[in-house]
Design a binder for these strands. Structure first.
Lengths: 264, 264
DNA sequence: ATACATTTGTACGTATGTATT
DNA sequence: GAATACATACGTACAAATGTA
């Protein structure tokens, strides 16, 4: 795929039709590297070098298109990947801005967060971020064993240990069964206690699933992670004594601050 | 195949009458939800429901565009997000395919790679990379419960399922106890069988520790991972029936091909 | 080995919606 | 309300990769 070849490639236009008042900067057409990629890399380099500081506004798309001598869509494609990587943020009507990096990068001494989290699911004190009643997506419905579209309650939380953010995530409950669970949780910070107020005093972990990936923008913010760090994504299903799914949740753990320990 | 002619076709609003010769399925224009999102969710639901099985080829973009009554670009945008989420994979000239779900890899007291892979209906394969007798480092010594400097045998391996690399790693054994274990392993490709030739027919997992990070260069090579992908690093201690440490190992799993599963 | 059809990928062009200033 | 700027959507053309006759 990296074999460079010739190929004029002029899609739909003669190259010299461009006005002389603007120099088509940087990008090399037919170089084997797509224009949007070259543009993305150029802009990223400008941000990384400090030439564009956090908070600074980028030139508008039309202007960038002119600068690189490409169509606005080509610029948008480049901006899109930078946006996904959390380097910039665009708002309709305002503009596109270089994002501030997360403020703190707490030390990454690998705490053995351990059995507590995985084995029992009884997580230590958490911080309530918010909650919402929503229609169950296909995924949530499958995990909770209900029909898609069923009303479910989502609770978003983070967890810290000694002030260091450890994890963030969401848990879903069948709303009909867990009316106002979020209020109690917000007050107590303990899921176990919140559930007990609903008369659910016993439930057990049915399954825990683990995978990992690079932290996305939201996770970087909540967990104060630098770009390119990894999170472990933990999915869990809790069932009541009858074996009926009670909650399904997905949390992201800052991989370089935690070591999950599993004992059979 | 003749083209449907619906006049000037003003983009955006005017959810007016379209030609009846093609039924514009599902998507609701001007509903506040963008078309590409509706299409992405529809396709995702079809995959999740099993209507489109792993390995199956999706209709070509033009066909999907016709089905939903949108432009090919709108379909591409939808496919793009599904691709980023790892649900599908597109190759120029071939088509777009539903990806295999990650291999479920149970972590328990007696899980053996070959059994796990076989249970999922795939063909397991352990590859012997090499072995070496070395002096136990502080870490290895601690984990194996011996004095630092003790002779230990290191075996490097990779594992694949149906030819897809799953993990790579090293395992350490007390050399005095595991003379020529590497030779048998290299011949059989099975650790379980290799140990049985030494009279060790039963052992169990004492502990598993988990963390994650971005794959390094060696891992990228062994696991065919692109830059920036994550690995889950699994450290494990196996003990014999007497509870004496038998092996300590550290393996890196391709995070997007494996889902580690823990059941209580 | 070559030519061709198929299918995804890149790029440009145009129009309009929608949020912000 | 008007101007600005990003967001969505349609349309067209060709390049590049793949598979096949």
């Amino acid at each position: 795929m990296d074999e460079v070849d010739h190929g004029p490639m002029t899609a739909g236009e003669t190259a010299d039709a461009r006005s002389e008042s603007v120099k088509p900067e940087d990008v090399k057409r037919g170089s084997g590297v797509s224009l949007w990629k070259q543009i993305a890399e150029t802009l990223e380099a400008e941000i990384a070098s400090g030439a564009r500081k956090p908070g600074a506004r980028l030139p508008v798309e039309a202007e960038l298109a002119e600068r690189f001598g490409v169509n606005r869509h080509t610029v948008r494609r480049a901006l899109s990947v930078l946006g996904e990587r959390g380097l910039i943020e665009a708002t309709a009507g305002r503009g596109t801005f270089v994002k501030e990096p997360p403020l703190r990068y707490p030390i990454g001494a690998r705490t053995r967060f351990s059995e507590i989290v995985l084995a029992s699911g009884r997580e230590p004190h958490g911080r309530f971020l918010g909650s919402q009643v929503e229609d169950a997506s296909v995924e949530v419905a499958r995990e909770l064993g209900v029909a898609p579209g069923t009303k479910v309650l989502r609770i978003d939380t983070t967890h810290e240990a000694d002030g260091v953010p450890i994890s963030c995530g969401s848990a879903w409950f069948v709303h009909a069964r867990c009316q106002d669970l979020d209020l109690v949780y917000a007050a107590t910070g303990s899921l176990t206690r919140a559930l007990s107020t609903l008369g659910i005093i016993d439930f057990r972990r049915k399954e825990t699933r683990l995978t990992a990936r690079v932290a996305d923008e939201r996770e970087r913010g909540l967990l104060s992670l630098a770009m390119g760090r990894s999170v472990m994504v933990v999915e869990r299903v809790d069932v009541d004594v009858a074996g009926v799914p009670l909650q399904w949740g997905r949390s992201s753990f800052a991989a370089d601050r935690v070591q999950l320990v599993i004992k059979p």
